[in-house]
């Protein structure tokens, strides 16, 4: 069997040449060894740009929204976590299943590009697994039209895979006093640039118009200060509550390193405690806990 990368290229060429799809979205090699950004291929002659390596972090699902109104059928490469993003968009009626062709990749973990940059290429071997991969429960794609099984499954050694640690930082923050917690979050969000990279990359953030793009509405202000920044942080966290698939893309995209996942995972933890275990985007038929009503809710709201 050939490598994942070779198979990706073969299939992309076939799909484009046969006209089954008009575009293939995958990853290509970026400016530096630790970057494998998204690539959009429409010409079969360009399929050799596609790559598969330990830095193919990007969840490509969100890009489907850009082609929502297009007639084209698009092929997308998806890792396990990415397919949860697909389910997410399907559940919200954001995309049509028959307009996407999903090529699943059995993922063995992705490395942390930011830490790779810090360590340098000479210490490539020491680059740790991305945090989200260390507790990932669905490395195999959940939804796909075909599955690529490569010979290079062990590319990223899964010895860092702990299956635990999901709430490590959340628990640390929970143990803080309210003052310490305030200092922690204001310390981080004072840095927030309000660039909205976290929102724009997020497959759970798919409102046609975000409240933060409506600064004249009076709901939110455009000042970049502590109060507005915290308002943004809390609002976004609550808007993705129950729908966040824990892909970690928001935190990775944040240019100033804000630990956004701790906020998301705190909410996930609370939801699981209050409404029972729920993994967003895993089961297409199971409605997110915050969009349904159940008279047996264990919530003691009075």
């Amino acid at each position: 069997m050939s490598s994942i990368q070779e198979q990706m290229r073969i299939r992309a060429r076939e799909l484009l040449t046969s006209g089954q799809v008009q575009m293939v979205i995958g990853w290509e090699k970026g400016s530096f060894w630790y970057l494998s950004p998204p690539v959009f291929i429409t010409d079969p002659a360009e399929v050799d740009r596609l790559i598969w390596d330990e830095f193919c972090t990007h969840n490509l699902a969100k890009y489907l929204l850009d082609y929502k109104l297009s007639e084209d059928k698009i092929a997308l490469f998806v890792k396990g976590c990415d397919t949860r993003g697909i389910n997410r968009l399907l559940q919200d009626n954001q995309i049509q299943r028959d307009k996407v062709y999903l090529i699943g990749i059995k993922c063995s973990g992705i490395k942390d590009g930011r830490q790779a940059q810090v360590l340098g290429e000479e210490r490539k071997g020491e680059v740790p697994l991305a945090y989200k991969c260390s507790y990932c429960t669905s490395p195999a794609p959940l939804v796909y039209d075909e599955l690529i099984e490569g010979t290079d499954d062990s590319k990223v050694k899964s010895e860092n895979f702990k299956g635990t640690g999901r709430y490590e930082l959340v628990e640390k923050i929970e143990a803080m006093t309210p003052d310490e917690r305030y200092a922690f979050w204001t310390g981080h969000y004072d840095r927030c640039l309000r660039c909205y990279a976290c929102r724009n990359i997020c497959p759970a953030c798919n409102c046609r118009e975000c409240i933060f793009d409506r600064s004249q509405s009076g709901w939110c202000g455009k000042q970049m200060n502590r109060s507005e920044n915290l308002y943004f942080a809390i609002t976004r966290a609550m808007h993705v509550a129950g729908r966040c698939i824990e892909c970690g893309e928001c935190e990775r995209a944040c240019p100033v390193g804000i630990p956004i996942m701790a906020l998301n995972q705190k909410i996930i933890k609370e939801i699981n405690d209050l409404f029972g275990e729920y993994e967003a985007g895993v089961d297409l038929e199971m409605k997110p806990p915050m969009v349904q009503y159940n008279s047996d809710d264990p919530d003691e709201f009075e």
Partner: peptide
């Protein structure tokens, strides 16, 4: 195509100087 339309590039750029008045 791959751009997210975020403000990371412009807000970190030392020469980007656009502003809004509200």
């Amino acid at each position: 195509r791959k751009c997210l339309g975020c403000g990371a590039c412009t807000y970190l750029c030392p020469t980007c100087h656009c502003f809004d008045i509200q």
